[in-house]
Amino acid sequence: MPSSLGLIEIQDALPLIPAGRFYVKSPVGILKDAISGRLDEYDFVLIDCPPNLGIITLNGIFISDYFLIPSIPDILSTYGIPQILGRIDSFKRETGINIKPLGVVISMYRAQSRLHDSVIKDLKSKAAQNTYPRVFDTIVPLTVRTAEAADFSVSVNTLRQKYGSGRVYENYHDLTKEFLAHV
């Protein structure tokens, strides 16, 4: 299902909608209600949520079995991982859902950055200590080709059409295989 930047406005408006004659549920269950009739048609549904834990993201978490944390391997991008894990754990306890962390996916990696290599080493160390979920072995580098793939005006049907053959396609193909191995 395609998304829209208009979700930002919806996210801001949802908590302001009063319960009443036509709206009696929590804003957190809206996505589940909207797509529950279609979920059986798919083996996997990936929900790409905003990089925050607002109402839209909580809706995605509410109906999910697993969650991934995509992260750029730098200080600021990884700084919030403990807060994400803690907030999802609290949400899990409060709602009774059974969601599990599937792992951290490194993206926008710069190959010759000592900082990126150091942060990845630290993330893997914390995963080995069970402080963080696993860090996926597949690392998605920062490439112009990947950024160009966000152009939705181009009609594509497969990842190979979108990314072409070669390294960029192989990175996402490897990530897909690793994802499937862990679910």
Rank of each mutant, 00 (worst) to 15 (best):
I55D: 09
I55A: 12
I55M: 14
I56E: 07
I56C: 08
L58Y: 03
L58G: 01
G60Y: 12
G60L: 10
F62C: 00
S64N: 06
S64K: 05
S64V: 10
D65W: 03
F67V: 07
L68F: 14
L68C: 07
L68D: 08
L68A: 02
I69C: 07
I69E: 02
P70F: 02
P70Q: 02
S71N: 03
I72F: 04
I72V: 13
I72L: 11
P73M: 02
S77P: 03
S77M: 05
T78C: 14
T78Y: 06
Y79R: 15
G80Y: 04
G80S: 06
I81C: 06
I81T: 04
Q83G: 02
Q83P: 00
I84S: 02
I84N: 00
L85C: 02
L85H: 01
G86E: 12
R87I: 13
R87P: 00
D89R: 12
D89H: 09
D89I: 00
D89S: 14
D89M: 05
S90T: 14
S90L: 12
F91E: 06
K92T: 14
R93T: 07
T95Y: 11
I97C: 07
N98E: 14
I99K: 06
I99V: 15
I99T: 08
P101N: 04
P101E: 03
P101G: 04
L102R: 04
L102H: 05
V105T: 11
V105R: 00
V105K: 01
I106P: 13
S107D: 04
M108E: 12
R110D: 14
A111D: 15
A111W: 11
A111P: 11
A111V: 12
Q112D: 15
Q112E: 15
S113G: 10
S113Q: 10
R114Y: 09
R114L: 15
L115T: 14
D117L: 14
D117V: 09
D117W: 03
V119L: 09
V119T: 08
V119W: 09
I120Q: 07
I120G: 10
K121P: 00
D122I: 01
L123G: 08
L123K: 11
K124P: 02
K124Y: 06
S125Q: 14
K126L: 15
K126Y: 11
A127C: 07
A127V: 10
A127Q: 05
A128W: 00
Q129L: 15
Q129F: 08
N130E: 15
N130P: 00
N130L: 09
N130M: 09
Y132P: 04
Y132C: 06
Y132S: 05
Y132I: 06
P133Q: 05
P133S: 06
V135F: 10
V135N: 09
V135H: 07
F136D: 09
F136Y: 15
D137T: 13
T138A: 05
I139R: 04
I139P: 12
V144S: 12
R145M: 01
A147C: 05
A147P: 00
A149P: 01
A149I: 00
A150P: 01
D151H: 04
F152L: 14
F152Q: 13
F152G: 13
F152W: 08
F152C: 07
S153V: 06
V154W: 01
V154M: 07
S155W: 01
V156D: 10
T158R: 11
R160L: 13
R160W: 00
Y163A: 00
Y163H: 10
G164H: 09
G164V: 02
G166A: 05
G166Q: 09
N171L: 06
